[in-house]
Structure formats: C-alpha cells, structure tokens
Simulated assay, not measured.
Amino acid sequence: MRDRSAVVLIENKKVALVKRVREGSVYYVFPGGGIQEGETPVSAAKREALEELGVEVEVKECISKVEFNGTQYFFNSEIISGRFGSGAGEEYTDEKRDRGSYLPLWVEIEKLSCIDVKPGEVALKVQSFYVSSVKEEC
C-alpha cells in the first residue's frame, strides 16, 4: 500500500486526465502518483503534475480523500507555468517499465460520467461541482 496524490485541473469546462491503455483496458486517471518518503501530499501533487503533464501548479484545497490501497488525495489545482503535455516522467521515458501507455488530455467535464475514470467517485464529485445540470451525451 502506498499513498497517492493527484491534481484536479479545470480549464474551459474541461478536466485534465491521463488516458491509460494497459493490458487491453482503457481507463482514465487524474494526474498524480505515489507519495515518496518524506514528501507531503501537496509536494507530491506538485511533483507529479510536473512529471506527468509538464506543468507547475498551485495546489489549493483537497477536494477528496479516498481510501484504496492506501490514502489517495485529490487537490483542486491551477496551472501557473509550463506546457501541458510536455511531461517527461519515468512513465514516458523508461521503456522497461511495461505499464502500458499514458496520454495526458483534456476531457469535457460533462463527459466524465461517460468514460471509465478511476476513481469514479472523484470524477462524479468534480462533475457535480462544475456542471449545474449534467447531461449524458455519450
């Protein structure tokens, strides 16, 4: 079990996700990863945003905490610099990792309930915060 920290980035009615294709499955996750020894959840969220997305973020409030194989923290965050999609973390550079593919992208908030986002309860919470009337247009 390892604690994990992730960022929730919202811009222009879209949320930043990482599309994962692994062992024949396609799913989406909020950008983030494991909290290293001696690291706080906030500093881990900042580091992971830079590694996975290529952006520096301002971490705001924790909007969700999920217990699953450790504690997972999800922070409302804002991009302050960098270029989205230019991340160079080990998931992109270590060819021997064999953990599937990673593709950072922006997804319309209204579509969150139409795709497999993990964890689903955080996707629904984000959707309810930012969409007044959720329409299922899958």
Rank of each mutant, 00 (worst) to 15 (best):
68 F>N: 04
14 K>R: 15
103 L>A: 04
88 A>H: 10
138 C>S: 08
62 C>H: 03
70 G>C: 09
19 K>M: 06
101 S>T: 15
118 K>A: 02
102 Y>T: 13
97 R>P: 07
65 K>C: 02
49 A>F: 04
51 E>P: 07
88 A>S: 14
62 C>N: 15
91 E>G: 01
118 K>H: 03
111 K>E: 05
85 G>C: 11
21 V>W: 02
54 G>C: 10
76 N>E: 07
78 E>K: 13
71 T>P: 01
86 S>N: 15
20 R>G: 00
16 A>H: 02
69 N>H: 11
2 R>P: 00
107 V>L: 11
119 P>K: 02
5 S>V: 06
54 G>Q: 14
64 S>T: 07
133 S>K: 15
131 V>P: 04
2 R>G: 10
45 A>G: 07
72 Q>D: 01
18 V>L: 03
77 S>A: 15
37 E>I: 14
68 F>D: 08
30 F>S: 07
81 S>M: 06
7 V>A: 12
133 S>E: 12
113 S>T: 08
93 T>I: 14
1 M>K: 09
110 E>W: 02
72 Q>P: 01
97 R>D: 06
66 V>I: 15
45 A>P: 08
98 D>A: 10
30 F>V: 07
43 S>G: 00
11 E>Q: 15
115 I>D: 09
27 Y>T: 08
53 L>R: 10
3 D>P: 02
113 S>F: 01
126 V>R: 00
24 G>N: 07
13 K>P: 00
24 G>D: 02
34 G>S: 08
44 A>C: 09
64 S>G: 06
129 F>R: 03
16 A>W: 02
111 K>C: 02
